[in-house]
Protein backbone atom coordinates (compact mmCIF):
# COMPACT_ATOMS: atom_id res chain seq x y z
CA UNK A 1 0.00 0.00 0.00
CA UNK A 2 2.79 2.39 0.98
CA UNK A 3 6.36 2.11 -0.19
CA UNK A 4 9.26 4.38 0.74
CA UNK A 5 12.52 3.84 -1.15
CA UNK A 6 15.62 5.76 -0.04
CA UNK A 7 13.51 8.77 0.82
CA UNK A 8 15.27 11.91 2.01
CA UNK A 9 13.91 15.31 2.85
CA UNK A 10 15.93 18.45 3.49
CA UNK A 11 14.56 21.80 4.48
CA UNK A 12 16.32 24.87 3.23
CA UNK A 13 19.19 22.75 1.91
CA UNK A 14 20.61 22.24 5.41
CA UNK A 15 18.39 20.57 7.95
CA UNK A 16 17.92 16.93 7.09
CA UNK A 17 14.50 15.80 8.34
CA UNK A 18 14.64 12.37 6.71
CA UNK A 19 17.63 10.44 5.43
CA UNK A 20 17.43 7.29 3.36
CA UNK A 21 14.16 6.04 4.81
CA UNK A 22 12.78 2.84 3.32
CA UNK A 23 9.83 0.73 4.39
CA UNK A 24 6.70 -0.87 3.02
CA UNK A 25 3.23 -1.14 4.49
CA UNK A 26 1.02 -3.87 3.10
CA UNK A 27 -2.62 -3.39 2.26
CA UNK A 28 -4.77 -3.96 5.35
CA UNK A 29 -1.92 -3.47 7.83
CA UNK A 30 -2.00 -1.26 10.90
CA UNK A 31 1.37 0.33 11.60
CA UNK A 32 2.65 2.75 14.21
CA UNK A 33 5.24 5.34 13.36
CA UNK A 34 7.08 6.46 16.45
CA UNK A 35 10.05 8.44 17.67
CA UNK A 36 10.78 11.62 19.58
CA UNK A 37 9.44 14.86 18.29
CA UNK A 38 11.66 15.96 15.44
CA UNK A 39 12.53 12.37 14.56
CA UNK A 40 10.69 12.71 11.26
CA UNK A 41 7.24 11.23 11.95
CA UNK A 42 5.43 14.31 10.73
CA UNK A 43 7.68 14.57 7.69
CA UNK A 44 6.73 11.04 6.66
CA UNK A 45 3.06 11.92 6.93
CA UNK A 46 3.47 15.25 5.18
CA UNK A 47 5.20 13.50 2.30
CA UNK A 48 2.40 10.94 2.15
CA UNK A 49 -0.22 13.69 2.05
CA UNK A 50 1.81 15.46 -0.63
CA UNK A 51 2.06 18.57 1.48
CA UNK A 52 5.72 18.30 0.64
CA UNK A 53 7.79 16.52 -1.94
CA UNK A 54 10.82 14.41 -1.02
CA UNK A 55 14.27 15.76 -1.84
CA UNK A 56 15.41 12.24 -2.74
CA UNK A 57 13.95 8.82 -3.28
CA UNK A 58 10.64 7.45 -4.32
CA UNK A 59 7.31 7.09 -2.57
CA UNK A 60 4.52 5.01 -3.99
CA UNK A 61 1.02 4.58 -2.70
CA UNK A 62 -1.24 1.81 -3.99
CA UNK A 63 1.33 1.09 -6.69
CA UNK A 64 1.52 4.67 -7.97
CA UNK A 65 4.62 6.82 -7.74
CA UNK A 66 3.32 9.93 -6.02
CA UNK A 67 6.59 11.85 -6.05
CA UNK A 68 6.01 13.00 -9.59
CA UNK A 69 2.30 13.52 -9.38
CA UNK A 70 1.30 16.73 -11.12
CA UNK A 71 -0.05 19.52 -8.91
CA UNK A 72 -3.42 19.32 -10.60
CA UNK A 73 -3.67 15.63 -9.65
CA UNK A 74 -2.92 16.15 -5.97
CA UNK A 75 -6.53 16.84 -4.91
CA UNK A 76 -7.67 13.59 -6.46
CA UNK A 77 -4.85 11.73 -4.77
CA UNK A 78 -5.73 13.25 -1.40
CA UNK A 79 -9.32 12.11 -1.78
CA UNK A 80 -8.09 8.53 -1.65
CA UNK A 81 -6.63 8.89 1.82
CA UNK A 82 -8.28 9.85 5.08
CA UNK A 83 -6.22 11.93 7.48
CA UNK A 84 -6.72 12.54 11.20
CA UNK A 85 -4.86 15.50 12.68
CA UNK A 86 -3.70 16.13 16.21
CA UNK A 87 -5.44 19.50 16.22
CA UNK A 88 -8.50 18.06 14.45
CA UNK A 89 -8.55 20.71 11.67
CA UNK A 90 -12.28 21.21 12.00
CA UNK A 91 -14.06 24.27 10.67
CA UNK A 92 -15.34 26.10 13.71
CA UNK A 93 -18.12 27.98 11.99
CA UNK A 94 -19.77 24.81 10.70
CA UNK A 95 -21.81 22.16 12.44
CA UNK A 96 -20.44 18.70 13.14
CA UNK A 97 -22.58 17.38 10.31
CA UNK A 98 -21.18 19.92 7.84
CA UNK A 99 -17.62 19.21 8.92
CA UNK A 100 -17.97 15.48 8.36
CA UNK A 101 -19.82 16.06 5.07
CA UNK A 102 -16.99 18.21 3.67
CA UNK A 103 -15.05 15.42 1.90
CA UNK A 104 -18.28 14.26 0.25
CA UNK A 105 -19.20 17.77 -0.86
CA UNK A 106 -15.74 18.15 -2.39
CA UNK A 107 -16.29 14.90 -4.25
CA UNK A 108 -19.69 16.12 -5.39
CA UNK A 109 -21.77 13.44 -3.72
CA UNK A 110 -25.54 13.73 -4.00
CA UNK A 111 -27.06 15.34 -0.88
CA UNK A 112 -29.16 12.32 0.12
CA UNK A 113 -26.24 9.95 -0.18
CA UNK A 114 -23.97 12.36 1.66
CA UNK A 115 -26.48 12.55 4.50
CA UNK A 116 -26.59 8.77 4.80
CA UNK A 117 -22.83 8.47 4.84
CA UNK A 118 -22.31 11.26 7.33
CA UNK A 119 -24.85 9.67 9.65
CA UNK A 120 -23.14 6.32 9.28
CA UNK A 121 -19.73 7.82 10.03
CA UNK A 122 -21.00 9.80 13.03
CA UNK A 123 -22.75 6.70 14.28
CA UNK A 124 -19.48 4.79 14.02
CA UNK A 125 -17.73 7.25 16.34
CA UNK A 126 -20.77 7.57 18.62
CA UNK A 127 -21.57 11.20 17.90
CA UNK A 128 -24.74 10.95 15.84
CA UNK A 129 -26.66 12.83 18.51
CA UNK A 130 -24.30 15.83 18.28
CA UNK A 131 -24.53 16.40 14.53
CA UNK A 132 -26.02 19.90 14.91
CA UNK A 133 -23.46 21.06 17.47
CA UNK A 134 -20.52 23.31 16.64
CA UNK A 135 -17.00 21.91 17.23
CA UNK A 136 -16.43 24.36 20.09
CA UNK A 137 -19.29 22.78 22.04
CA UNK A 138 -17.54 19.40 22.04
CA UNK A 139 -14.79 18.06 24.28
CA UNK A 140 -11.31 17.41 22.89
CA UNK A 141 -11.98 13.68 22.63
CA UNK A 142 -15.26 14.28 20.86
CA UNK A 143 -13.66 16.71 18.44
CA UNK A 144 -11.06 14.07 17.64
CA UNK A 145 -13.83 11.58 16.94
CA UNK A 146 -15.41 14.09 14.58
CA UNK A 147 -12.04 14.33 12.84
CA UNK A 148 -11.98 10.56 12.51
CA UNK A 149 -15.54 10.48 11.16
CA UNK A 150 -14.53 13.04 8.54
CA UNK A 151 -11.45 11.00 7.62
CA UNK A 152 -13.44 7.82 7.04
CA UNK A 153 -16.69 9.20 5.65
CA UNK A 154 -15.60 8.66 2.06
CA UNK A 155 -14.30 5.18 2.94
CA UNK A 156 -10.66 5.64 2.01
CA UNK A 157 -8.41 2.62 1.60
CA UNK A 158 -5.67 4.37 3.56
CA UNK A 159 -6.03 6.16 6.86
CA UNK A 160 -3.23 8.36 8.21
CA UNK A 161 -3.18 9.85 11.69
CA UNK A 162 -0.76 12.36 13.16
CA UNK A 163 -0.67 12.10 16.97
CA UNK A 164 -4.41 11.49 17.12
CA UNK A 165 -4.29 11.02 20.89
CA UNK A 166 -1.79 13.79 21.54
CA UNK A 167 -3.97 15.85 23.83
CA UNK A 168 -6.16 13.14 25.32
CA UNK A 169 -6.07 11.29 28.62
CA UNK A 170 -5.22 7.55 28.58
CA UNK A 171 -8.82 6.37 28.71
CA UNK A 172 -9.90 8.55 25.76
CA UNK A 173 -6.73 7.61 23.90
CA UNK A 174 -7.57 3.95 24.25
CA UNK A 175 -11.08 4.62 22.93
CA UNK A 176 -9.72 6.44 19.92
CA UNK A 177 -7.22 3.64 19.21
CA UNK A 178 -10.02 1.11 19.35
CA UNK A 179 -11.79 3.09 16.63
CA UNK A 180 -8.72 2.89 14.40
CA UNK A 181 -8.49 -0.83 15.05
CA UNK A 182 -12.14 -1.19 14.06
CA UNK A 183 -11.51 0.50 10.74
CA UNK A 184 -8.40 -1.59 10.24
CA UNK A 185 -10.39 -4.74 10.90
CA UNK A 186 -12.69 -3.98 7.97
CA UNK A 187 -9.77 -3.62 5.59
CA UNK A 188 -8.52 -0.06 5.88
CA UNK A 189 -4.75 0.33 5.94
CA UNK A 190 -3.80 2.50 8.93
CA UNK A 191 -0.57 4.40 9.54
CA UNK A 192 -0.48 6.16 12.91
CA UNK A 193 2.22 8.54 14.08
CA UNK A 194 2.44 8.67 17.85
CA UNK A 195 5.00 9.11 20.59
CA UNK A 196 2.77 7.52 23.22
CA UNK A 197 5.04 4.51 23.70
CA UNK A 198 2.97 2.95 26.48
CA UNK A 199 -0.13 2.95 24.33
CA UNK A 200 1.74 1.58 21.34
CA UNK A 201 3.22 -1.22 23.39
CA UNK A 202 -0.20 -2.30 24.61
CA UNK A 203 -1.70 -2.45 21.14
CA UNK A 204 0.75 -4.95 19.63
CA UNK A 205 0.90 -3.69 16.08
CA UNK A 206 3.89 -3.30 13.84
CA UNK A 207 6.06 -0.33 14.86
CA UNK A 208 8.38 1.76 12.71
CA UNK A 209 10.80 3.69 14.88
CA UNK A 210 12.47 6.85 13.62
CA UNK A 211 15.43 8.65 15.16
CA UNK A 212 16.93 11.82 13.75
CA UNK A 213 15.41 11.23 10.37
CA UNK A 214 16.49 7.62 10.05
CA UNK A 215 14.50 4.45 10.38
CA UNK A 216 16.16 2.66 13.30
CA UNK A 217 13.75 -0.18 13.96
CA UNK A 218 10.96 -2.06 12.26
CA UNK A 219 9.30 -4.22 14.88
CA UNK A 220 6.81 -6.74 13.63
CA UNK A 221 3.46 -7.10 15.38
CA UNK A 222 3.73 -9.17 18.52
Amino acid sequence: MIEFEHVGKRYGGRFEALADVGFAVERGEMVFLTGHSGAGKSSVLRLLMLLERPSRGRISVAGHDITRLHVSQIPFYRRQIGVVYQNHQLLHDRSIFDNVALPLIIRGAAPQEARNRVHAALDRVGLLHREKALPIELSGGEQQRVGIARAVVARPALLLADEPTGNLDPQLSADIMRLFEDFNRVGTTVLLASHDLALIARLRHRVLRLREGRLVADEEAA
Partner: peptide, 18 residues
Protein backbone atom coordinates in the same frame (compact mmCIF):
# COMPACT_ATOMS: atom_id res chain seq x y z
CA UNK B 1 -20.44 2.01 -6.91
CA UNK B 2 -21.15 2.86 -3.29
CA UNK B 3 -24.34 1.46 -1.91
CA UNK B 4 -26.86 3.83 -0.41
CA UNK B 5 -27.16 1.97 2.85
CA UNK B 6 -25.62 3.31 6.00
CA UNK B 7 -23.53 0.29 6.85
CA UNK B 8 -19.96 0.82 8.04
CA UNK B 9 -17.23 0.35 5.46
CA UNK B 10 -16.84 -3.26 4.48
CA UNK B 11 -13.77 -5.26 3.58
CA UNK B 12 -11.98 -3.90 0.57
CA UNK B 13 -12.48 -0.30 1.66
CA UNK B 14 -14.60 1.05 -1.13
CA UNK B 15 -13.69 4.35 -2.60
CA UNK B 16 -16.23 6.75 -3.90
CA UNK B 17 -17.22 6.47 -7.52
CA UNK B 18 -19.23 9.08 -9.28
Amino acid sequence: PPSRDSAPPRRGARTHQI
